[in-house]
Amino acid sequence: MTLRPALLAAAAAIAAFALPAHAADTIKIGNIGVTSGFLKGPGEPALAAFDIAVEEINAAGGINGKPIELIRFDTGSDPKQAAVGARKLIQDDEVLAILGPFSSGETRVALTVADRAGVLMIPTAASAPGLVDKSAYGWRLTEDESKQFSRLLAAIKDAGLPAETAAVIYVSDEVVSNTAGTKLYPPLMEAAGIEVMDPIPVQYKSFDMSAQAAQILEADPDLVAIAGLPDSASKVIKELRRQGFEGRIIGSQIFSDPVVVELFGPEGEGTMMVAGFWKGRTEASAAFDARFLEELDKRGIHKKGAHHSDAQAYDGVYLLKQIMEAAGVTGDPEKLEEERAAIAAAMEGVRFSGVVGDDICFAGHDAELPGYVIEIKGGAWTKFAEAPADSCE
């Protein structure tokens, strides 16, 4: 029996449709983020930074000619959910690599999943010391808290500001804040020649911090170091000032977000912290900051400028693009394990330039980044001092 041309064409089309796909049409990248819970404030804006980078890359031709497909999972600020998200993205969605989770607590549990599966994971704002030291697949485009806080203390000493005595107050139920307040701040300040009181805990949901503030005022230290996210730090600062504390308030990267200028209000004047991003560093840095604020405005999110975690989120997508192109990634499902391994291998010895820094290298699995000491002065986010990135040699 002879088939008519039209029937032949139809049969060919059906056969082609029935054949298994040998290559994906997209490059699948997982993104573990947060839009609710106590991390919502600093975490949600970072999602816009991821989206901006993906949009830019796709508009320019994607990765090796294929667009990025960003598959997102929301943890709700729950570390256990970060592990669930990692498993889903790796096993069900078959992503090639993962951007996120946001925090150190989430990353600590999710990394175990990524390491077992052999999938590259680049956390967003996880800055707890030593977090990826024992991980084979976790790499951070984030500067370690201990290094940044040390840079702040050095700047205070170099400027001759009063810094003989200090108190530490920390939010006990925030993982990174607890770690910073109990294990990071005290030894670093003591090493800098500063006498430190025993750290004082407060809880995230606590609205009455008067007793803790009164304890600090009785000691009357030169410095009060706060380990807490912006909302928590704001409560502590306002209570300290209400009770009459006149010394200098300081913090590390944990609350160094431009939004604190408004959040802390007049009570925040003179507060010093250290950040990993300065929008005036390059034209590209300034352009990102402007584009980021424009996107946040569309989403109904108010901020005064990009936090370093936002800039690191943006740069993280471009870092993945660079190593995926170097690894020749195709997104072919049949090459999933092979390409995951190639991506991880491409991180070794990589050098990367972005809005956060130029020619960034990695010491171990940690990026070496510059640091910017920020002071709230005249109600504005101002640069007090800066430190260049350390060498990876």
Results as ranks from 00 to 15, higher is better:
117 A>M: 01
118 G>D: 02
120 L>I: 03
120 L>M: 07
121 M>G: 00
122 I>Q: 04
122 I>W: 04
123 P>H: 06
123 P>S: 03
123 P>Y: 08
123 P>Q: 05
124 T>R: 04
124 T>G: 04
125 A>Y: 09
125 A>Q: 02
126 A>H: 07
126 A>F: 09
128 A>C: 01
129 P>L: 06
129 P>H: 06
131 L>M: 06
132 V>R: 00
133 D>Q: 09
133 D>E: 13
134 K>A: 07
134 K>N: 12
135 S>L: 04
135 S>V: 01
136 A>H: 09
138 G>H: 08
139 W>T: 03
139 W>E: 02
139 W>D: 01
140 R>P: 06
140 R>Q: 08
140 R>V: 01
140 R>I: 03
141 L>W: 12
141 L>C: 05
141 L>H: 12
141 L>I: 09
141 L>K: 06
143 E>A: 13
143 E>W: 05
143 E>I: 05
143 E>D: 06
144 D>N: 15
144 D>R: 15
145 E>P: 05
147 K>F: 13
148 Q>R: 15
148 Q>A: 14
149 F>L: 11
149 F>W: 09
149 F>E: 04
150 S>T: 14
151 R>V: 06
151 R>P: 00
151 R>M: 14
151 R>E: 14
153 L>A: 11
154 A>D: 14
155 A>D: 10
155 A>T: 10
156 I>E: 11
156 I>H: 12
158 D>Y: 08
158 D>V: 03
159 A>R: 15
159 A>E: 14
159 A>M: 11
160 G>E: 14
160 G>V: 12
161 L>A: 12
162 P>S: 07
162 P>V: 04
162 P>Y: 11
162 P>M: 10
162 P>E: 08
162 P>C: 08
163 A>H: 14
163 A>F: 07
164 E>A: 15
165 T>W: 13
165 T>G: 09
166 A>K: 12
167 A>R: 07
167 A>S: 15
167 A>T: 05
168 V>I: 13
168 V>W: 11
171 V>T: 13
171 V>M: 09
171 V>S: 03
171 V>I: 14
172 S>Y: 10
173 D>I: 04
173 D>T: 02
173 D>V: 05
173 D>W: 12
173 D>Y: 10
173 D>G: 05
174 E>A: 10
174 E>R: 03
174 E>M: 08
176 V>D: 09
176 V>E: 09
177 S>P: 07
177 S>D: 13
178 N>K: 15
178 N>T: 00
179 T>F: 15
179 T>Q: 15
179 T>S: 13
181 G>S: 09
181 G>I: 09
181 G>C: 11
181 G>R: 11
181 G>P: 13
182 T>Y: 03
182 T>N: 07
182 T>F: 03
183 K>D: 06
183 K>C: 00
183 K>R: 15
183 K>P: 01
184 L>E: 08
185 Y>H: 13
185 Y>P: 07
185 Y>W: 12
186 P>D: 02
187 P>S: 03
189 M>E: 11
190 E>S: 01
190 E>N: 07
191 A>W: 05
191 A>D: 09
192 A>R: 05
192 A>E: 09
193 G>Q: 02
194 I>M: 09
194 I>F: 08
194 I>R: 05
195 E>A: 14
196 V>M: 07
196 V>D: 03
197 M>P: 00
